[in-house]
């Protein structure tokens, strides 16, 4: 599967067979506090692609990511993994990086070791993956430091490295570079580029238009809990068809259509 993903046709290639669907949402909805926060979400994440999810604050981007990862159960609809309902085994083929990295109260190396031990790895293989993860995050010198005293950028690099050390097929990232400086953002994007080159499928929530242009193959634009538009990232960013995306990209406040109904 990895090998196949490595040979995915470049974004926008004409006539190339589309990559197989890795994950999909079908009629996905989620309710909380008497309100439907996302509704009728249909989308497909194709193998080896980099899908960017954008939209205003409160549009449901983070919620959608958690639904795709199975961290919360949808009120309606289903999440599919390779055509079958997402289950525990399928979730182990995914990894997620949160906006605020969750660092265990342990050293940098112990954070990596914990994640790998949970995946059942031990001995030389675990040591090799630890070494590779530290190298990719450029944290070799800080391996023995408590993870929680690292800078925000270093913590996020470690979070990405920890997720990738588990060798997921799909990596979900919830605004991983929010509040990071340009150098730290670039370092994270390099980690993602390396992962993508190895065939990892990426789904990234971001508000950063430049990042969306640099990373995105596909783009899903959410507005008020619904998919307002989706398609090739370059096309959506250059010539959005939905009023919501057009308004957001031009910096205008878009008030319609009306918010989702209370349930």
């Amino acid at each position: 599967m990895r090998d196949a993903a490595c040979h995915v046709a470049p974004s926008g290639a004409v006539g190339a067979a589309p990559a197989p669907v890795l994950a999909a949402a079908r009629g996905l909805a989620f309710e909380a506090g008497g309100r439907r926060l996302v509704d009728g979400i249909d989308l497909e994440i194709r193998e080896g692609r980099r899908t960017v999810i954008m939209g205003a604050n409160g549009a449901g981007k983070s919620l959608l990511l958690r639904l795709l990862h199975g961290l919360i159960r949808p009120s309606a609809g289903t999440v599919l993994w390779q055509g079958r309902p997402l289950d525990r085994a399928a979730r182990r083929a995914q990894a997620m990086v949160f906006q605020r990295p969750v660092m265990l109260r342990r050293s940098v190396r112990a954070n990596l070791r914990f994640a790998l031990a949970v995946r059942g790895l031990s001995g030389p293989e675990r040591a090799e993956r630890e070494r590779a993860a530290l190298a990719s995050a450029r944290l070799e010198e800080l391996a023995r430091r408590p993870a929680r005293v690292l800078s925000g950028g270093e913590q996020q690099r470690l979070a990405v490295a920890r997720a990738l050390a588990c060798e997921p097929e799909l990596l979900l990232l919830d605004e991983p570079t929010a509040s990071l400086d340009p150098a730290s953002t670039m370092a994270i994007e390099e980690q993602l580029a390396e992962a993508h080159a190895r065939g990892v499928t990426l789904v990234l929530v971001t508000h950063d238009l430049g990042q969306a242009r640099r990373i995105g193959d596909d783009l899903v634009f959410l507005h008020a809990g619904r998919v307002a538009e989706q398609g090739d990232a370059a096309r959506v960013l250059e010539a959005p068809r939905s009023e919501a995306a057009r308004a957001w990209l031009s910096g205008r406040i878009y008030l319609g259509p009306p918010p989702l109904r209370p349930v």
Binding site: L71, V102, R105, F114, V118
Partner: peptide, 25 residues
């Protein structure tokens, strides 16, 4: 509360979760 989503994402089992929480605390 701080670790829950990360543990769920990593697929940490119940016993490992309790052991990790006790160790980190």
């Amino acid at each position: 509360r701080e670790y829950a989503e990360q543990f769920a994402s990593l697929g940490v089992g119940p016993l490992d979760r309790v052991a990790a929480l006790l160790w980190d605390a």
